[in-house]
Computed example of a mutant assay.
Amino acid sequence: MAKMVLLAEYLSLNGTDLSSYTRKAEVAVEVEDKDVTTYASLGWKEILGGLKSGELGIEFLQDVAATKIDSIMWPLLGTVVTFEVRADQAAVGASNPKYTGSVLIKSWNPIEGSVGDEASVGVSYPTSGAVTRAVA
């Protein structure tokens, strides 16, 4: 079994490469389970997949200087934008697939942390529509 260490993850939001600000990016997708059990199921639960949903979790290192992450993210608040995440910044391929879709930028925490902490921002955005996986 191959193993990997994330050293150069790629994150793009709204067509802008934000990898240089990104400490962590996680794409999670799931399918609702729907109980379709009937008396004919003979006491066994029967489940079908329902609606799919996803979430993009990100941790950024904050920078409030002009043209940096805070000025990039602030105008996106309340909008649906595209995203792309890859395990590595290398070209997309069979061993470096890209995950793409759209997310709702539903929050932004411009100031977060305690005395002596690095300035970081943790956010989680729900997907809007399909999340796709591609190798080309």
Rank of each mutant, 00 (worst) to 15 (best):
T127P: 05
K3C: 01
L18P: 10
Y99L: 09
E84T: 15
F60I: 00
A65W: 04
G50M: 08
L77A: 05
L11T: 13
A90R: 14
L18S: 08
Y21M: 06
W108M: 10
Y10P: 02
A136V: 09
V31D: 08
A65F: 07
K34R: 14
V81K: 11
E59A: 06
A134P: 02
T67L: 03
A8K: 15
A65E: 13
K34Y: 04
A91Q: 12
S20T: 08
P97Q: 05
Y21R: 08
Q62N: 15
A119I: 00
G93K: 12
V123Q: 14
G122T: 14
E59R: 14
D33S: 13
R86S: 00
A25G: 05
R23S: 14
K68L: 03
K45F: 00
K98L: 02
P97N: 07
G101T: 06
T132K: 10
T67N: 13
A134C: 03
A65K: 14
G78L: 04
M1L: 10
A66K: 15
G129T: 05
E32T: 11
R86N: 01
Q62S: 14
K3T: 12
A130D: 12
V131L: 03
L7A: 11
V103R: 04
E26K: 14
T22Y: 08
W44F: 12
G93C: 09
S41D: 06
S12P: 03
V29R: 13
S95K: 11
T22V: 11
A136Y: 13
G101I: 06
A136R: 12
T38H: 04
T67Q: 06
R86A: 00
L51F: 08
S95Q: 13
N109P: 01
V81R: 06
G129I: 04
A119Y: 05
A119T: 03
N96C: 11
V31H: 11
K24V: 11
D63A: 08
G113V: 04
A94I: 12
L7V: 09
S19Q: 05
V123L: 14
L76G: 02
A65V: 03
S41N: 12
S128K: 14
P75Y: 02
Y39K: 13
D117G: 05
T79G: 01
D88R: 13
L76S: 02
M1G: 15
K106V: 02
P110G: 05
A119K: 09
T100A: 13
T132F: 01
G54W: 10
S20L: 08
G113R: 07
K3S: 11
N109I: 03
L13N: 00
M1P: 12
M73L: 15
S20Q: 14
G49L: 09
L18I: 10
T16H: 07
A94N: 13
V5G: 09
D33Y: 04
L6G: 05
V81I: 10
E30T: 15
V115M: 11
